[in-house]
Amino acid sequence: MIVGVPKEIKNHEYRVGLTPAAVQEFINNGHDVIVQMHAGASIGFTDELYQAAGAHIIESAEEIFERADMIIKVKEPQPNECKMLREGQTLYTYLHLAPDPVQTQLLVESKATCIAYETVTDNRGALPLLAPMSEVAGRMSIQAGAHYLEKAHGGSGTLLGGVPGVAPGKVLIIGGGVVGLNAAKMAMGLGADVTILDRSLNRLRELDDMFNGRLHTVFSTADAIDYYSSRADLVVGAVLVPGAAAPKLLTREHIKNMKPGSVLVDVAIDQGGCFETSKATTHQEPVYIVDDVVHYCVANMPGGVARTSTMALNNATLPFGLAIANKGPKQAMLDDAHLLKGLNVHKGFVTYKAVVDALGDSLNLQYKDALDALAF
């Protein structure tokens, strides 16, 4: 199989689909790898390193898409990339289709086989290809929040850890999954006063045990969100409904009641965001202010630490990617029900129900169960 790795083109996106070490694994399995010139250069993965691993360096993205049987990326394809996809070709990357009708329509029209990292599962029901970036984003959410709490950046001038004689800042984390856990670790490491809201009592018990009661765990209700958000200096949105649009848990009224200069970090923005006032931003222009509250809604947050993120992502995506290349996408998915969960679009059909549920009113989508679609 010819595996193609184009350079990412989203604003300030420096991650790359394969590291040189991952390329060597594909080469050792008998595949050809073509990598676009300078695809990883900005994070230290030079063309020479890729060539040493056995890859061929290609100048243009157009040639990568034309020649490759499988395209491996990080971020969702931009419109011009979608238009280069073709039937019989496999796309293996993050997609986040539910809040993105344009991308969804273009992928349907391409008739390519599109496997989304974020919906691949494991035998524990977790999302192993989303987890590494959730870990990164959770940790970065506190870094970003602490930065934008500084007065010069629009915040209230609050130091999350406080100092002797001055109370620490209050951090509210909505969602106790991988993002929430990693955000809590960072915030508590800084000395902040941290509360996590979640609707799973079992998860709240786990978190309470992990932190020996130093973390406030609260069952998530509308009343709890109202109470704790109005007192928080930093709120991290860390909710996830796999493959679906994120629920709007913080309303405009909640935000009006927040303290001036407080900060919102919406880690769920890839799935449409979990705050009513959220809109996707970039690393170039990461924040905006609504009702005196700073909003940080960068849609590719882990791209800010692109080298760490790329290596962490490759550790997770490589085994599935090798299975796709070694067996072919159809057989690989038939052999692995967890990889099959990653199939979102195939031959013009949407194969992930949550995407149809989110976009059915705006697009004339044809849904087909993933197994049925593979037989088509």
Rank of each mutant, 00 (worst) to 15 (best):
A354C: 09
D361C: 02
I43A: 00
A222D: 10
K151S: 08
I173Y: 05
K347D: 10
G243I: 10
A52H: 06
Y352I: 09
A144H: 06
I27S: 07
G213R: 13
T158E: 11
V293E: 03
A184V: 11
M186I: 03
G138K: 12
A112T: 02
A316M: 11
N29Q: 09
A39N: 07
K347S: 11
V235E: 14
P329Y: 15
L374Y: 07
Q51H: 05
D226R: 15
L250W: 04
K111N: 13
D336N: 15
L249C: 02
M188I: 12
S278P: 05
I115Y: 10
I269D: 10
G191N: 05
Q24M: 08
V120Q: 00
G161Q: 05
A167V: 13
A224M: 13
K347F: 01
Q78K: 09
N202A: 03
P286A: 04
P319V: 03
I269G: 13
I72Q: 10
N326T: 01
D223S: 06
A244K: 09
E59R: 15
C297Y: 00
H338Q: 13
Q366C: 09
V236N: 09
A354K: 14
R205I: 15
N80L: 09
D208L: 07
A323C: 13
Q51S: 15
I174D: 03
I324R: 12
P168A: 09
T46H: 05
V267E: 01
L18M: 05
F320N: 11
E62D: 13
Y288M: 00
D266K: 01
Q331T: 08
K279R: 14
